[in-house]
Design a protein around this nucleic acid. Structure first.
Lengths: 144, 144
DNA sequence: CTTTATGCAAATGCTTTGCAGTGCC
DNA sequence: GGCACTGCAAAGCATTTGCATAAAG
């Protein structure tokens, strides 16, 4: 219960109601809903009876991301080159992983592959670069 | 010279000055500048003395993307979770490739790796999905 | 001629900011 | 009490759309 407060303090952030609530929402998100948009967090707050402004949700999530508490992703909505893409946030639970998004259901599956990770490092190196970060998203469709 | 007109007709688009000009700009982009934002294309047009509206640039690029003539990417600006990301367009020259973006210089290097491509397919399959598309961007830093 | 494209300006959607008021430590 | 945090409304960007005009086939 006081767990969240610790995390916040560690991040150098004052323990306030919006921050604690948002952290709880992210922590309690079911496996199927680990990737929330700012709007979804906002709605969850209202459903929980808390009156937090959308601006605050964005501010808090951005701070959390800067503190490494959460990760921000930018999944593109549809293929078809519709530049529409909103951010989704997910609690950073230690190890890194990539994502697979179903183009039909919107479902998100996480995965981690050592082979790919290593190849990426090698490829960057071959070009004289050091790999700092990467973003890999597979757009998939359920098999029939 | 009439090459562009053929490509446009093939795509089912009327041959108009804005479309031809934009196609030329993309084709003549140097190796270091193959990835242009709508704004950059717009500026290039003005520099070439053509008065094309930015809205038209967007419309044309979107049509080109839909026709498969160009590919639209969404490189994120800075890491640090600043959701800032604008689209860049690149001429689709046949084979698929991924990108490596230098976080300092903004330079973009293209690459293709059969191992990664294959692993992606396998990973999707293992989860009962069919791989439709993917987006892979490596964020790198020049080695010292 | 008829259809499709263009330009401009206004509208959008998501995200950030300015500022006065509020609540942590 | 002071300074960080919040809420609200307004500002910002990149991109899209409505509509009257202009050009293509």
């Amino acid at each position: 219960m006081a767990e969240e407060n610790q995390e916040l303090r560690r991040a150098g952030l004052k323990v306030t109601l919006p921050r604690v609530k948002i952290l709880q929402i992210l922590e309690s998100a079911g496996v199927e809903q680990q990737h929330l948009s700012a709007e979804e967090v906002y709605d969850a707050l209202r459903d929980a009876g808390e009156n937090v402004g959308l601006a605050t949700v964005y501010r808090v999530l951005t701070q959390f991301a800067a503190a490494g508490l959460v990760t921000r992703h930018n999944f593109e909505a549809g293929r078809d080159g519709s530049g529409t893409s909103h951010s989704v946030f997910e609690l950073a639970r230690g190890e890194h992983h990539d994502h697979m998004v179903c183009m039909e259901s919107g479902e998100v599956v996480e995965f981690h592959d050592a082979v790919i990770e290593e190849r990426q490092r090698q490829i960057a190196e071959e070009q004289g670069y050091e790999l700092v970060d990467h973003s890999l998203v597979l757009y998939v469709r359920k098999k029939s």
